[in-house]
Amino acid sequence: MKIGALSRLAVLILLGVFLARPDWFGWLFTPLTRNGQAAIYTQNSLLNLTLNHLAIVAAATLAGSIVAIGLAVLVTRPAGREFLPLSRTLANAGQTFPPVAVLALAVPVLGFGAAPTLLALFLYGLLPIFENALAGLASVSPDVQEAARGTGMTDGQRLLRVELPLALPTILAGIRISAIISMGTATIGSTVAASTLGETIIAGLINSNLAFVAQGALVVGALAIIVNTSLFAIERHFSRYRRDQR
């Protein structure tokens, strides 16, 4: 794991330097340009685009997590159990919707810009978190539930001290999947005028400037890998009790 953490740090530092001083790397991208095109995207600072991108993804994932976990808790309580089978099916079927379609269909409701992107990311991001939260809550063994009741925990205590902590690794996996999907969908958000890293890629595609495409893609790819591995590390931390089994 040491090597993993080190390489994560290395990618992070490299990314940070690139975002702070993209012009230092111009020589790297020049071979991809034709007819003296600019090698580095300058319409908008790459740093700003990156921060914007991350902010949109973080906001949507956070909101999605809160709503999805809340819903999953609701439908696994006795009062909401009637909704469980349907909501599971809907979450499953909902994920067959391509994120792009969700994004495009959010435009008539909210117009262009960051808002439809946020809505699409939120809606689509809900599903994996919800599905994983359900799976996590369902995986708490009956023995453990029984023991928790037997020790005199109230329903609330059981949820907070036993069910949610045990479901946490699975829930975190859902949040990670959701965040990664959102990283990609946010990129496409540039087609509906959200200011994200997709902007450089789209600009590159429109102007046939592969340098722009490559730098946008590299930054998004690096971000996605960093986010994925970091969230994965958190997940592992919270599931440490599962390891070292005899």
């Binding site: 023995d143 453990v144 029984e146 023991a147 009741r149 037997g150 020790t151 045990l166 009790y241």
Partner: peptide
């Protein structure tokens, strides 16, 4: 239940 001890088969220990 808090006044009564309860032990079950397969122990029901909280794995986390």
């Amino acid at each position: 239940r808090r006044q009564i001890g309860y032990a079950i088969q397969g122990h029901g220990l909280f794995p986390h």
